[in-house]
Amino acid sequence: MIRVAAKLWAFIVRDFQQQVSYRLAFLLQIGGMFLSLGAFFFLTRMIDPEAKGLDGMNPFEWMLLGLAFQYYFSTALYAFSAKVRSEQMMGTLEAMLVSPTSTGLVIFSSAAWDFTYAGFRVLLYLGGAWLIFGISFHLENFPVLILGVVLTLLSSVGLGMLSASFILYFKRGDPINFFLSGMTTFFGTVFFPAEQLPAFLQGVSDYLPITWSLRVVRGALLLGKGFAELKNDLLALTVLTAVLLPAGLFLSRIAIRKAKQEGSLVQY
C-alpha cells in the first residue's frame, strides 16, 4: 500500500515538474476561467429562479457547481486517453511497463497529476466565485461533501480508464470519449435540470455519475443537506463507482494485453 502510494506520488511529481515549464499557459487559463465565470454570472440572471428542478437554488450558484464538475469529469475523460496516447508515442509507456509495476497501476496513475491540477482549478473557481460574487456555501456537512468528492473522483477515474482502454485496444480516435463528453454536457444536469427534459429522456441522466455527484455537491454546498437527506444520491454514486472503477482497471489490463500481442505498446 505504501509502495502504491509512493508510485502514485512519483507520477504526480513527474508531471508537476513538466508542468512547471508552462507557467504562462497556466496564468492564461486562470484568466480565461474568470472571464467565463463573469459571463455565466450575467447569463444566469436571465434564468427564472422558480424553474422546475432548481429546487430553490440560485441559478448562478447552481450552474457554477455544474460547470466546475463538468470540467472535472471532462478532464478525467480526456486526461487518461491523452496521456496513454502520448506515452505510447514517446516510448515511455514501454519503459514503465518493463519495470516491476503492474499495468493497472501504471494506467491508473498516469492521470494522477491531471486530477490534482483539475481539483486545484475547481477550488480556485469556487474560491473566486466566493470572493468576487459573494456566494456563501454551506460547509457544515463537510464529511458528506468529502465523501461525494471522493466518489466523484473514483467514478471519473473509472470512466477515464475505460476511455484509455478503448484507445489502446482500437488504436484510434476515441468515440467513447466524444460520446461521453456529449452525454455529460447534455444529460449531466450541468446547464439545466433533468426535470426540464421530456419525460422519456429524463432517465438517461440517472446512468451518469456526474448527475449524482452534482446532486450531492449542490445539496450539501447550496442547501446545507446532511447525510440523511443525501444518502440515496450517495448510494447511487457508490453503485456507479463500484461498476466503473473495476471495469476500468479490468479493461485496461485487457487492452495492454492486446497491445502486447500486437506489439503496439510503442507507436511511431
Partner: peptide, 9 residues
Amino acid sequence: MNFFSTLYE
C-alpha cells in the same frame, strides 16, 4: 531517474 527509481521499487 528519480521517477523510474520509484517504479523499480
